[in-house]
Simulated scan of single mutants.
Amino acid sequence: MYRLPRLPSAVKISCGSVLRRALIGSHRKLHLAPPWLLDDYIPRYHLISSVDASRKRSEAYAHLSKCNLCPRLCGVNRFEKTGVCLIGADVKVDTIAPHFGEEPCFQGHNGSGSVFFSGCNLRCVFCQNHTIAHQRHGFDLTPEKLAEWYMMLQDVGKVHNINLVTPEHVVPQVALSILHARDLGLRLPIIYNTSSFDSLESLKLLDGLVDIYLPDFKVWRDDTSRRLLKADNYAATAMESIKAMHAQVGDLCFTDDGIAKKGVLVRHLVMPGKADEGREIVRWIAENVSKDMMVNIMEQYFPRAHVGKARRGKSAKSEEVVEVVEPGGLRASPQTMAKVRYEDINRPVDLDEVALVRQAAEEAGLWRFVEAAKHGGFNI
């Protein structure tokens, strides 16, 4: 009987490695260079010392007593009253559940463990989550109860991460909840899903607790931010915040299952007539933060919240027949057409505008883009 020649052990190991890589490569096409591919990952909150954890707890309570953790600088005692964000010492949460509407690298097969906080420190007139962010819907939770929900998302929901949505105004409570959840046995990465209207003091408190920063860079011009976000110096604040986030956790990294574990991913929602601002934003990211930054250029803008509503005050009296789209995309009949609020953004975004921003990003040197899954599910 013919026998195969014996191979040296080193050769067998090498062949086995090649075979494993070939099999993995046929199933998963991550196309990741080693700097962004992790063998394993330990959440950052497990790496801080007990002394640092105690210090962060003390700082969190101090910030709540004289709130300075967003650029509004309300300075209120959150144990007694609320500021612009409408939230006091406890958090108000609208929804806690596995979420399948995030980027594929966050939602995976089991979903992202999303916590949608009520309240916000911005007042975006086009807010896609208007009833959550601008109204106090939901139920109240202490940081300790919030930590218990993290554990349920991990142990029952089997989610891939804890995704804190719009948390800028509840950073002290978030810090306390993460530290408590650590003691309860949480072992999932923490995502800080923010509008980028954060203060450096806030991000300093989060350093060592957050694994993934998911900032949204909304607009570039100051007059746009004052008119549409009701905030001064938004772009300057966002630039400062995103730089600080990147300094903490770097570019987005994954394990070989395609799930992101650490780093920054910047979102930009392209808005009608604002492609020029989007181009400035992606150029700034490439030139001032990192050309290896992962970016999601989003096309799902649609009139929401106050956009398309009837004008108030004196201007409401002067009816002018114009072609408008009401909230939800319903066209008004010619008899009821009248001037509406924020007419310039009262339409879905044009895909040509999205393409212009994408082109500017590529020309600036960005190359890591979030691509939609072709099959409508988890893209690995």
Rank of each mutant, 00 (worst) to 15 (best):
V354E: 06
A361Q: 06
D276M: 12
A235Y: 09
P272M: 06
L188M: 03
A310M: 05
Q107K: 11
P334L: 00
S241V: 09
F139Y: 05
K261Q: 15
V270G: 09
G25D: 09
T194N: 01
L179I: 10
L69T: 05
V93M: 01
G273F: 11
D256R: 11
L269S: 01
G185R: 12
I48G: 08
G25H: 10
C74M: 00
N379E: 12
E280H: 12
V91L: 01
H31Q: 07
L228C: 13
N121D: 07
H375N: 07
G278M: 05
V264F: 01
F100E: 02
L214D: 03
T82M: 02
A332G: 08
T255I: 15
Y234N: 07
A316H: 11
L209N: 02
E371R: 14
P172C: 04
R55V: 14
F139G: 00
L86C: 00
T166D: 04
Y342T: 11
W220F: 15
F302S: 05
R221L: 14
R341L: 13
Y41C: 08
V307F: 08
C74F: 01
D292S: 03
R358M: 05
L153E: 04
L229T: 12
D39G: 10
V249C: 06
L252C: 02
P167M: 01
V289S: 06
A22M: 11
D94E: 09
M245Y: 09
I259T: 07
A147D: 07
D344C: 13
L366A: 05
A361P: 06
S290M: 05
A247S: 13
L214S: 04
S49F: 01
E353D: 14
V322K: 10
H306S: 13
V325L: 15
A372Y: 14
A244N: 14
A10C: 11
R304K: 09
L122E: 00
V354M: 06
E362N: 10
W284Y: 11
G365H: 00
A175T: 01
R6W: 08
N121Y: 04
S58Q: 15
R28E: 08
V357L: 08
R57S: 12
D52P: 02
V282N: 02
V357D: 04
G119C: 03
F100W: 02
K66H: 06
S177T: 01
A235R: 08
N233L: 11
R221T: 12
I48L: 13
H99V: 00
D140N: 04
K339H: 10
I259P: 14
K262D: 12
E299G: 07
I178P: 03
I242G: 07
T95P: 01
I297W: 02
Y41A: 08
K92A: 03
T95F: 01
R331W: 15
E371D: 14
R55N: 13
T224R: 10
I132Q: 03
I24Q: 11
A338F: 12
L146F: 04
Q335F: 03
T82V: 02
L4V: 14
G138F: 02
D207I: 13
V295M: 07
F254N: 05
C253W: 04
R221I: 10
V249P: 04
S118A: 09
G101K: 02
